[in-house]
Amino acid sequence: MSATLATPAGFAGPTCPAAPAASGASIGRHAVGHAKDAVLAGRYELRERVGRGSAAEVYRAVDLAGGPDAAVKIAVAGEPKNRNVILNEAAVLATLDHPSIIRFIASGTTRGDGTHAGRPYLVEELALGQSLARVAALGRCPERELAAWAHCLFEALAHLHSHGLVHRDIKPSNLMLSGLRRSPVRIIDFGITARSGASPEPGISSGTVHYMSPEQASGGAARHSWDIYSMGLVLLELHTGAKAFPGTAVESLVARTFRSPHVPDSLDPEWRSFLCSLTAMDSAERPTAAEAAVTAARLMRR
């Protein structure tokens, strides 16, 4: 999960330039509403909590060195897997550098005797904007805007995949409008990202049911094609304003094992062909992320 603040998205063209470099880590002192665990990485002071998931609490943090506010994820106490999710996400983000991927800033373990003492944390760029889940709930999106988002998101996936990684949880709520000119959208929440070829871990969720590929739903080894299929379902939902496989978790899982998602005949033929290829039942028939980015750029130029 990631912190969000509503603001309009901006876009400067089809190219997503390189993201700024990340900075380093350590911890310090007094907290607002907590004791002695509020300054992380030597400069990020915790303020209000802006979100809470099963594995982490998310806080807005002020940069005491004068930089922009950041988001801080701190593992929820209790289950060891919560610690692992934060540690995994920090390790993954530290290796990535792309404008359409949330930017890593620092990570570490809180010290002292405060509320969060002894828990791993991750400091990352604060996501300014609404999620594509909110956008999808408002109905259909303009095709050119969708193409611009798809172009940058597939380029981000290509960057991730080039590192041998699979996101495994591509869904509208993990895709954020950025409000920044360097990229209109960003992928967030890399807590369950895994190496390509890795088998599912006991006790760790492997994605969100309504956006899983058929082979991901069956519990196979992680593949890059999972992310392609999931992104296809997201783009289809943004086109239609409805989930491709609605219903309960079981109903949704069963439906995708029998059929491809329905892509309306009323869509532009090139978009329809693109969406069908992304969500092909046979993973070998799906394009790579890099190929999908090229197609999205062509649709954007139209």
Rank of each mutant, 00 (worst) to 15 (best):
R298F: 15
L278N: 01
L275H: 06
D268K: 00
F274L: 01
E270G: 12
A284Y: 09
L278T: 00
T288P: 03
D268E: 06
L275C: 02
E270Q: 13
A284I: 02
H262L: 11
S277V: 04
H262I: 13
L278M: 04
A296E: 03
H262S: 11
W271N: 01
R272K: 13
S266I: 11
L275M: 04
R298C: 09
A292V: 02
R259F: 01
E285C: 14
H262C: 10
S260Q: 12
P261W: 01
A290L: 09
V294Y: 14
R301A: 15
T288Q: 02
L267M: 07
V294E: 15
P287C: 05
A280Y: 00
F274M: 04
E291C: 05
E285S: 00
P269V: 07
T288A: 02
A289W: 03
F258L: 15
A296S: 09
D265Q: 05
M300G: 15
T288V: 10
L267K: 06
L299G: 04
A290N: 10
R298I: 07
W271E: 08
R286H: 01
A297I: 04
A296P: 06
R298P: 09
V263L: 11
L275R: 13
T295N: 03
P264W: 06
P261H: 07
P287Q: 03
S277P: 03
A284F: 13
D265A: 08
C276S: 13
V294H: 14
R259V: 04
E270M: 14
A297S: 15
L267Q: 10
L278P: 05
E291V: 10
L275W: 08
S273M: 03
L299D: 02
L278F: 06
E285M: 05
A293S: 10
